[in-house]
């Protein structure tokens, strides 16, 4: 035997796995048949749809707004830089759980949200007109800012702060010489960013964005506190509480999140492959290593003590 240590390890792990499988099969509390029956029922699927919709919209807001904030942060204009810094500071400081509840209760501040000339009443008073109103359109805050939209905004705006930092790191990782070469050719700032810098920054941006997406998938369960009910974890827990089968439904939640995360990982793999175009084999190997490192230690710790 050339590697006695390995065989010892195999034996120990084998025994542990056997114990775990034995637990899964024999312990009645798992109630597998009940779990499988329940986890595909319409309200759960409805919740699953809600979770995916939240994930997609929140990440979309996060990525688009994050890109804008990153560009502001790197701008030569000190005002834009300051605003970007303040935004990141606020949304990284406040836990997502607190944000979710806060956004769910914004209806307390305003009954209606309206868009138009700012300070219209005050301006009207200045010219002696009472009740001057210049508003284009509005909606009832209580109707809109509860539930899904509040949850989406809380998660999306918070994500934008993290994405801004990721995008900024990505842009800064691109060699200065690339911008200079493009400038020397007579390209404009927008062109340089879009065609030269961002495509190269993507190699640095995509892997952590994958992690962010997975973290976001899990954080969608926070919107239960907004409250939003069309959400996977809320629905599974509701079934568990109603039927006093709490544990099988917790396992069902685990299984669903594992499934969804696995789908996301496949997507991330192909995205990374696409953006490593033109980079040598060694760089591609590095990307793979980074992915493995992220999988084994990728906690974000920003769920805010949920």
């Amino acid at each position: 035997m050339r590697h006695p240590g390995r065989w010892v390890a195999v034996a120990v792990i084998g025994v542990l796995v056997a114990m775990f499988v034995h637990l899964l099969v024999t312990n009645k509390a798992f109630n597998w048949s009940y779990m499988v029956d329940e986890m595909f029922r319409p309200p759960i699927i409805e919740g699953l749809r809600g979770t995916i919709a939240l994930l997609l919209t929140a990440m979309l807001i996060g990525i688009v707004l994050g890109l804008v904030i990153a560009i502001m942060r790197l701008s030569e204009n000190p005002i834009l830089r300051g605003v970007a810094w303040a935004y990141t500071w606020f949304f990284r400081a406040v836990p997502r759980l607190v944000l979710a509840i806060l956004f769910g209760n914004l209806g307390i501040l305003w009954a209606r949200v309206e868009f138009g000339l700012p300070f219209d009443r005050q301006i009207g008073a200045l010219f002696g007109v009472d009740d001057f109103e210049a508003r284009l359109f509005g909606f009832s805050a209580v109707e809109i800012l509860t539930g899904f939209v509040a949850g989406m905004l809380a998660l999306g705006l918070s994500e934008a702060a993290y994405m801004a930092e990721i995008v900024r790191a990505g842009i800064q990782s691109v060699d200065e010489g690339q911008t200079e070469a493009a400038q020397a050719l007579g390209l404009r700032r927008g062109h340089i960013l879009r065609r030269i810098v961002l495509p190269q920054a993507m190699r640095v941006i995509v892997p952590p964005t994958g992690n962010e997406t997975i973290a976001m998938l899990k954080d969608t369960s926070l919107v239960a506190f907004v409250p939003v009910s069309t959400e996977l974890f809320f629905q599974l827990r509701a079934v568990g509480n109603r039927s006093f089968q709490v544990f099988p439904m917790l396992v069902a939640a685990t299984v669903w999140y594992l499934l969804l995360t696995s789908v996301l990982l496949v997507g991330q793999y192909y995205l990374e492959k696409h953006f490593s175009k033109g980079v040598g084999r060694s760089a591609r190997a590095r990307t793979k290593l980074r992915g493995i490192a992220a999988e084994s230690g990728g906690t974000t710790g920003k769920a805010g003590g949920a």
């Binding site: 690339q178 070469a181 493009a182 020397a184 007579g186 190269q200 175009k277 033109g278 980079v279």
Partner: peptide, 15 residues
């Protein structure tokens, strides 16, 4: 645009 420049470190666009 009327002035071409060649750099020490090439600065080709790697992608």
């Amino acid at each position: 645009r009327t002035i071409g420049m060649v750099f020490q470190r090439f600065n080709l666009f790697p992608h």
